[in-house]
């Protein structure tokens, strides 16, 4: 997991909404192959932070330095708009909480996956379709559904399709916003297990936002706990959850219901 330089170096990231704080002075490094969980309750700023990290929202202050493949570490907000767009389409993946935000509902499942490949230059129809079929299989969607429209899919299938669409272009960094949040509990376990396996097999670096500490424990190597826009505690996942130091983290951990 250790490489010479971090994949992402975040320094002093701040975003306000008028007088209201979205996130304040957030700094961290993300190393290749590392899964960082950002936990906190609604309104803690975790989604704002994720949007700033993934260039969906411009911060008011601070830097997000990404180790690009060809030009080394670059501040993503100093890149030209086309360069940033290309990065987002090729090197990065973004998995939204609601799959409809990350999918094109008007085209088939296969086209949703194939589109990302075409964005990185693939032109051979046969190969694109073969790749789409392979990825549908990897996310446990039956191959005969490839020409079906996403609206005929269940919530769990849609989320798996969104994951396939993101991973088909072999991204190095994937951002996930509450990836299990819109799913029924019985479907969550399957998706978690699938994500856990894919992340380990592909050696992906991931920043995952979740309010669910069980999801964080399962997926993340490291956690940052956010409250009112600031990071109040960070560390190894099991350390933060089993030996929380900050009063707010202790309250979060103590508030989990164990069936």
């Amino acid at each position: 997991m250790m490489a010479a330089t971090p994949l992402l170096q975040v320094r002093g990231l701040t975003r306000r909404y008028g007088a209201r704080i979205g996130c304040r002075d957030v700094s961290f490094d993300l190393w290749p192959g590392e899964v960082l969980g950002i936990v906190g309750e609604s309104g803690s700023g975790k989604t704002t932070l994720l949007k700033c990290l993934s260039a969906q929202l411009e911060p008011d202050a601070g830097q997000v330095v990404y180790a690009t493949r060809d030009e080394g570490p670059r501040d993503i907000f100093a890149l030209s708009e086309p360069r940033r767009r290309l990065l987002m389409r090729t090197d990065w993946g973004i998995v939204h909480q609601h799959p409809v935000e990350g999918l094109r509902m008007g085209v088939s499942a296969g086209a949703n996956v194939g589109e990302r490949l075409m964005a990185v230059g693939a032109r051979n129809y046969g190969r694109i379709r073969a790749s789409a079929l392979d990825w549908l299989g990897r996310v446990e969607i039956a191959r005969d559904r490839i020409d079906d429209m996403p609206r005929t899919f269940s919530g769990g299938m849609l989320q798996r399709l969104q994951i396939a669409r993101n991973l088909v272009s072999s991204p190095r960094l994937v951002f996930m916003d509450e990836p299990t949040g819109s799913l029924d509990v019985s479907v969550q376990a399957r998706l978690l297990d699938l994500l856990h396996g894919l992340v380990a097999d592909l050696g992906l670096s991931v920043v995952v936002v979740t309010h669910d500490l069980a999801v964080a424990r399962l997926l993340a190597h490291r956690l940052m706990v956010m409250r009112a826009g600031s990071v109040v505690e960070e560390g190894l996942t099991d350390q933060v959850l089993d030996d929380p130091q900050h009063a707010y983290t202790q309250l979060l951990v103590a508030s989990i219901l164990h069936p």
């Binding site: 997991m1 190393w31 590392e34 399957r190 297990d193 424990r217 490291r222």
Partner: peptide
């Protein structure tokens, strides 16, 4: 660092706890 502790756990430190924590379908 957390990264070093994970490396330590991968190669050097084994731990048999009283409770098994598993991923649902594995």
């Amino acid at each position: 660092t957390p990264q070093k502790i994970l490396e330590l756990r991968r190669h050097t430190l084994g731990y048999v706890s009283q409770f098994l924590r598993v991923i649902p379908r594995v």
